[in-house]
Amino acid sequence: MASSPLGRPTRGTTGTNRLRRNDRWIAASRAFLRASDPLVIDLGYGASGVTAFELATRLQRVRADAEVRGLEIDPARVASADAQLAEVRAGRTPFSPDLRVSFARGGFEVPLADGRRPAVIRAMNVLRQYDEADVAGAWGTMTSRLDPGGLLIEGTCDEIGRIASWIDVDAAGTPLRLTISLRLAGLEHPSVVAERLPKALIHRNVPGERVHAFLADLDREWDRAAALSTFGATQRFLAAVTALRDQGWPVEGGRTRWRLGELTLPWAAVAPRG
């Protein structure tokens, strides 16, 4: 256990199902599915351990041997999560008493015993309070703790989990791709995600930057597909993403992911200039 965890305490805000979109992404990731030790870190889980419980529940549906470790800098938050875990173990919650979850004090250094290296580190809503210049260093510290085939997933979402985005970073500290994930029902424009871009991109949504061009083009195609709203927001989004790809944007995945309101691009397509 780290005596002086690296990083700053987050605001601690969390909530039931806030990170469900990100949970789904981790459960489908190659880093998790192919890991010899499917240990996933929920870094900076906040004032409640609920996101760790939900993550473990969803991962264990895919791999029964999945394990989640929640890490927080604030010892009071660790104590609170441990008290919640005791309730889970006693069978007094909706979660399985046998859920493979634990909590500990830690930060970017990701302290683990016995030389273990996680398959995935999830750091959602952790870097919002930092400067953009701090991002690369934080990524480097976290990814140095990963299994060689592991993945850091770092990003941001709104308070109820309807708008989210994250960056996949490999064990060498190299950003691989950006994903945006939106609840399509009631969506006015996809560019609403600009308010919830990861720290590496949130200040880059200005003319001349790639991510700005991407969001502008996505909004334009969303508007052009407005007539399809009669058939539902999902059909409208599918048309917008298809048009975006036809214009040359290197959109990854296919309709199965797009129907969920998810759109992924290689990092090079949105990386900051200069």
Rank of each mutant, 00 (worst) to 15 (best):
V120M: 02
C157Y: 00
A240W: 00
I202D: 15
I180H: 03
L6H: 01
M1K: 13
V270Y: 09
L85T: 12
L43H: 05
A27F: 11
P207Q: 10
F103R: 12
L184Q: 02
L244R: 02
R11K: 08
D74Y: 10
A90F: 01
R177W: 01
L218R: 00
R11E: 06
C157M: 00
T264L: 04
S165Y: 05
L55Y: 02
A194V: 10
R61W: 08
R210K: 13
A268L: 04
N125W: 07
H189W: 15
L187H: 00
D217C: 10
A31W: 09
T242W: 06
E54K: 10
E87N: 14
E188D: 15
L218A: 04
A269W: 02
T234A: 06
E209F: 02
G208L: 14
D42A: 13
A79P: 06
G254Y: 07
A200V: 14
V62A: 07
G140P: 01
V193Q: 01
R122D: 04
N17T: 07
N205Y: 15
Q84A: 12
A104F: 06
A200D: 10
P250L: 10
T14F: 06
L263Q: 03
T179Y: 03
E54T: 12
L39A: 06
E87C: 10
A239Y: 03
A233F: 07
A28I: 00
L265R: 05
Q60A: 12
Y130R: 10
N125M: 09
P97L: 14
D168V: 01
E154V: 12
A35G: 14
R273M: 09
A47E: 12
N22G: 08
R30K: 15
F103T: 11
R257E: 15
P272A: 14
D147Y: 04
R177V: 00
A119C: 08
A269M: 02
A104V: 06
